[in-house]
Design a protein around this nucleic acid. Structure first.
Lengths: 195, 195
DNA sequence: ACAGAAAAAGCACGAGCGTGCGAATCTGGA
DNA sequence: TCCAGATTCGCACGCTCGTGCTTTTTCTGT
């Protein structure tokens, strides 16, 4: 890896953290330069525009999510065990991976009304993730753990709602009971989906 | 109502719409002045600081929410009918009340990591709303519609998750099936809670 | 070790931000 | 009708933003 690529990677790692805390718009080139000990123009040269920086930052987040959640999920045994593995790693992602909360949630709120490449990228991520959840639920159907007539898209929707509730309750309210509520809702959802 | 109060009210109505679309930080005094046909300084004089403007905007949103959701809910007959009324009005709020989506969701994401009066106000709103949902669920328990051993806080948590899922799916993905999924999850939740 | 390329810095710009202040205008009660 | 107070405006400030340039420093392959 060349020096330039290494620097860029380091910048993006910092950027993901900042975007997580304050969002993609408040992620400022000056602040990012200061935090990484670079000059504004030196940093800027790596991206050529703020929008490119934002897109690269989002992409870096997606890579991290893949490593922390998707890969371990696919490594788990098919069926309900894989569903539970997915949930647990997702929970870790929401809780520990980023100091400022999930950047996909942050990004969704920031760009849901603003057309452009950022919105498009977020939509793609979201669709992929929704389908991934449905697919994992599908393996649980195939293995006979879940009901054969389960609507996996509906399952995906419900599971995401649960995690959103966790995100908001844990982050804004700092409610220590958030985790218990989330797990309780998961069990209820799993019970309603089981064969 | 004096001229000043009328102007301030008109400003805040506009401000709620803008905050809904772009958030509280990107809600800019210059832009707000332009949109209301005032001068920056003339508008600014009503608030004396940007933070006060943000707080007043949030408060205006709270009033609207009270009118559109809380009052109609309390006017409905106690029990599961009231729960359903709350849900339907809440859905209208999420769908039609603001062009840019619920400002409490937007605000939560923006301020969950930033201490200060805005965060405090958002936390208060959120806690009040959570408790309100639990209370309404409690009347359904009292009326015998819901199980006597229902955990109303858990119910509140689950219902909020559902609405968050609706918010994200409808706003970012513009998924026309979002509404169906939300109603289906509601029925599942009601069934699991019923006596 | 050195030349050419890549990376980083320095500096400047125009624009928009929040905010202050004095002047102009408007409003409403006596 | 008039005037005190409320309301709005014009203008300016210091700051930070994203983004071009030119120059300097650092890498890298031979």
């Amino acid at each position: 890896m060349s020096k330039g690529q290494a620097t860029k990677a380091a910048i993006l790692d910092e950027a993901v953290g900042i975007a997580s805390r304050v969002g993609f718009n408040a992620l400022t080139i000056g602040q990012l330069a200061e935090q990484t000990g670079m000059s504004k123009s030196g940093l800027f040269a790596h991206f050529k525009s703020k929008e490119a920086l934002q897109l690269d930052t989002l992409e870096r987040g997606r890579e991290r999510f893949t490593d922390l959640v998707i890969r371990p999920t696919l490594a788990a045994p098919r069926g309900i065990a894989r569903v539970r593995t997915m949930f647990e790693h997702w929970l870790v992602w929401e809780t520990e991976a980023l100091e400022g909360g999930c950047i996909f949630v942050t990004g969704s709120i920031e760009y849901d009304d603003q057309p452009g490449p950022m919105r498009d990228a977020l939509v793609r991520n979201q669709q992929d993730w929704s389908e991934f959840i449905a697919t994992v639920a599908g393996t649980a159907v195939a293995e006979g753990d879940f009901r054969a007539d389960l609507d996996t898209a509906q399952f995906s929707f419900a599971l995401q709602g649960l995690m959103y509730a966790y995100h908001h309750t844990a982050r804004l309210l700092r409610d220590p009971k958030a985790l218990d509520h989330t797990r309780a809702s998961l069990e209820q959802l799993l019970a309603a989906s089981s064969a």
